[in-house]
Design a protein around this nucleic acid. Structure first.
Lengths: 213, 213
DNA sequence: TTTCATTTGTGAACATTTTAACAAACTTGA
DNA sequence: TCAAGTTTGTTAAAATGTTCACAAATGAAA
């Protein structure tokens, strides 16, 4: 039952992303293939579930052998769309923004930070991990010139929505937002929105009710 | 169809957490009640879904009127287990750890940072947002004395698992981990594990396939 | 009080996701 | 080459989650 990429269930895509992260690590060691059983132990996903997920994207396993790691990585990256380098910008260079700039595995994950922006004069001109922090007013010309489609917003919550509006108006298509609010975007734009506290609240619930996931 | 708290579907709990975040904001304004339709517009969840979620935790709405916000907040907080203040520690005071220490809404969300720890001598003794950074060796005595059950780990990925092991051995029950790896914990311990890059990868997929969620 | 407009809670239909089970395909080693 | 052991891909059943649609309950206005 082979589906078109757009028909792969969302939840399978999320797990494919997880598999890839673990496969990347495996591929650094002397391992060249992996079975659904082994990958299941690493990821805490049931082997049958893994095989089902992988069946949506084609038939790349060999019975009695497993999956070739490099081949599997290439397939997953193609499906997700990170087989080509994604150039993104970071808007807001506070602690979160700086943490993102300092992250060492962007290239391995398929991304490049093309630029960083902050409205604070004191931050402008600083170079963090090889990336220069530019002034906020430069952002629209920059993304236009460089053809950037995705922005990571690590701005103060109060200004995030208006920043999204401004960037969307300037042609930005994808927004990865770290503020704990629900973000609205115009049609044709997409947003992923994480609240770093919510999972902690969920943890409290699980702890209280002894729920192992 | 009233269920016991432990029978509320996990996904409903996650949405309850979202509802609460939005209700907290509403309760600051002059609004005292809210309908599932309005809350649906705010949260991007379908009204029927909201009513179903809320039906799991009891009957608190009035037909023709909606839900009393304060009452609803209290119920949700009781279900999640954050009706009592949760005291947590932060281990690792890099950029992420510092961002957490600086977060201003911990109290409103139901938490208190009881202590922060780092193994870097240069960070020890610093006071961030009123919280003193202590040495790594103090952590076990501290949590024992203070009765802390939940730790937030914002440590370098390489040492996170061993830090979890150490803390679990010292009686820690819940771990909220910021490293992009799958964490193992002993029985009776619980872990929430976020990779800040994964949602960005998912965004690339959605952008490429025009998937609005 | 009565009527009209709202809005809840829920049963049932529908949709999605997980799991189990197993034939067929492959590897390995003798 | 063959037999034994492994692992896939897939089918179908079970479990879980979402949506619809509407009776019943309430508020608001006349």
């Amino acid at each position: 039952m082979k589906r078109k990429p757009s028909e792969v269930p969302h939840i399978s895509i999320e797990r494919l992303i997880l598999y890839r992260r673990c496969l990347l690590k495996l591929s650094c060691s002397e391992v060249f293939h992996v079975s659904s059983a082994v990958l299941g132990r690493i990821t805490n996903v049931k082997p049958a579930n893994i095989r089902k997920d992988l069946s949506y994207v084609g038939e790349y396993g060999k019975p009695g052998y497993g999956y070739e790691i490099d081949k599997l990585l290439a397939v997953i990256e193609k499906i997700i769309g990170i087989n080509k380098l994604q150039r993104v910008i970071v808007v807001g260079v506070g602690n979160i923004g700086e943490a993102l700039l300092c992250y060492q595995d962007w290239a391995a994950r398929g991304f490049e930070i093309a630029g960083a922006f902050d409205k604070d004069r004191r931050k402008m001109g600083r170079v963090i991990n090889g990336i220069e922090v530019r002034g906020d007013s430069e952002v629209l010309p920059f993304v236009k010139k460089e053809g950037i489609e995705i922005a990571i917003l690590a701005t103060p919550t109060e200004i995030t929505q208006s920043k999204v509006n401004e960037l969307a108006h300037g042609g930005m298509r994808g927004f990865y937002v770290f503020s704990p609010i629900v973000i609205d975007v115009p049609g044709g734009c997409y947003v992923e929105n994480i609240d770093m506290i919510s999972p902690l609240e969920f943890l409290v619930y699980r702890l209280k009710n002894k729920i192992s996931k």
